[in-house]
Design a protein around this nucleic acid. Structure first.
Lengths: 335, 335
DNA sequence: CTGAAAGCGCTTACAG
DNA sequence: CTGAAAGCGCTTACAG
């Protein structure tokens, strides 16, 4: 038990040197006969190379560290699944860390990751301090931020085109005839949140409209719900709300309906992300799609080319997604 | 770049032997002065031990392999998050594999896991063939099945008390006055699915009722939705449906409402799991709670005691959870 | 307590 | 192509 077969035992059985065994399994040159003998012996003994030992020598662990917060937001399980599948297909493996989005916890996580000699790090929706960024750079470990930009950090990032997406959403609201439009923003500590707010403000300004309100929802259900209640209480109410992401938008819709209002008759709601739940009839949420698959592809391409030594300049990749018009918001007039 | 500091460099700077450095960082005995010198030098150089090298010698990687399918079912992201947090707190790390639930893919994953010398494996909602089980046993790697039992496999498992839970759900339906009760079962290839069906059948039999129908929903939204449609079409319809898990129950509710029926006026719906979404007003689903936190605790306790060498007999742990009565099903009569 | 030395299981120049 | 040997960065008996 626990006594794994080693390359020496295989060598002994196959009647070759240990180096020969290693060569066969590491894909180096070996004669067909040697290879055959080795493979036969290996199969007989159930031999498989110790990846850790290999990693120590090659300096490549083939492990990618993934840091993720907000797992209760449906967007991330989906992203995780796609990242995981794509990485597995390339022979990489994911060491996963779930973290609350606080700087101190993240520091510990990054150090753990470096201790494991990961080949690269994907940080989903978390920011790295400049100290941590330095650590990774010094260790030669590439980092890609997923769904969260961090200007001036020198880190690559992959996001959707948040400003543009938010502009589209807001414009759709305006073109549907709304004028008292509120925005429940994502967390202002995140560029993603700020960009979406920016897009909202741009579109409003361009239309000559004043935002009914802009309030930070912190990307949290509870916060968003209570903001919605507050907005819908009182004499003048918004006739439309653009919410910083779907996760909050569901809470907003729940709250508004519980207050007895009807969506979109009394108020239109638009979200951002297009998570699976958005298309379920219970919500049928109009939203801006973040193309998860393309974001994942871009992330891996960026990360893997850095790993493979191509000097990659920090890239800021933004991927556009369409507005998905559903029944939570009034359609554009005349359409 | 990539040139991590090693214990030798620290030793040199501190003026001690490399062994001394190792002792300080592995918690072995060292004099206070030595420790101080070493720590100072280490800090200065930014030294942290190479975990992979340590793992090779100790035979403990402190990596736990986690295999998970069904990440689109909200139950699993939540479980993952809790497992991850608890494991991190104990100094373990999770190598995660998402798999479609097919035997061949799982075999590959288990082999990968063993190659990484994981200390243990948690398999969430997947079964291991007896061949794979043997592999793990031979390698001395403990395995715990999470939310899925596998009788006769000799593997430990942690689930909720599925038979009992399903019985409770069904009884609640009966006591609410329903008599034409259908069951959209979980996948019959899983013990979890079979047990819940068993509980349903037991409760029906005990009440002298004949199931209106029992159909396998495969734990899939689409399948469940089309079964619901089929059930609700035609002259005689069920007046209540017990669904094998919440994930399917949401699809069932969506479908039934789209057909113009009202829940629970026309038909009561009960699910299983009590995922977060179940409590959101849009569904407000009556369901049997699976106590994720206690299931996670039990899983880790079982796994970690095996890892720590205590000869643990395969355990089959079932954790009971309450029925959460909400508005998707009629209340018990007279209550 | 401490250092010198062996060894974990591999990969990879280096000769032949 | 192949084997002997060095070495990846540690931990851990073994003497002192």
């Amino acid at each position: 038990m626990g006594a794994r077969t080693t390359s020496i035992q295989v060598a002994r059985l196959a009647g070759v040197s240990q180096s020969a065994v290693s060569r066969v399994f590491s894909g180096a040159s070996a004669s067909p006969e040697t290879a055959k003998k080795v493979r036969k012996a290996a199969k007989q003994l159930g031999y498989r190379p110790n990846v850790l030992a290999r990693a120590m020598i090659t300096g490549k662990s083939r492990i990618i560290g993934l840091i993720v917060a907000y797992l209760d937001n449906q967007f991330y399980p989906e992203a995780l699944e796609r990242l995981s599948n794509a990485l597995q297909a390339q022979g990489y493996h994911i060491l996963i860390f779930t973290v609350p989005n606080t700087a101190d916890r993240i520091a510990g996580v990054v150090e753990d990751l470096l201790d494991y000699q990961v080949d690269g790090i994907i940080a989903a929706s978390v920011s790295l301090s400049s100290g941590l960024t330095d650590l990774c750079v010094k260790a030669g470990i590439p980092v890609v931020l997923f769904n969260r930009g961090q200007p001036g950090s020198g880190l690559s990032s992959v996001t959707s085109a948040n400003i543009k997406g938010a502009t589209m959403a807001t414009q759709a609201l305006i073109e549907a005839g709304h004028s008292r439009i509120a925005h429940i923003a994502g967390w202002e500590g995140s560029l993603t949140g700020r960009d979406r707010q920016q897009g909202f403000e741009d579109a409003m300004a361009r239309a000559g409209l004043t935002p009914f309100a802009i309030i930070d929802g912190m990307f949290k259900r509870d916060t968003a719900a209570s903001i919605a209640r507050q907005l819908m209480t009182g004499d003048t109410r918004p006739d439309a709300i653009f919410v910083g992401n779907d996760h909050m938008a569901f809470a907003v819709m729940d709250e508004i309906r519980q207050m007895g209002f009807s969506i979109p008759a009394d108020v239109s709601v638009i979200g951002y992300d297009d998570v699976p739940l958005a298309s379920w009839p219970a919500y049928d949420l109009t939203t801006v799609r973040q193309p998860v698959n393309r974001m994942v592809e871009a992330t891996l391409e960026t990360l893997l080319s850095s790993i493979n030594g191509q000097e990659v300049y920090p890239q800021t990749i933004e991927i556009e997604g369409p507005l998905i018009q559903r029944s939570s918001s009034k359609p554009i007039k005349g359409s």
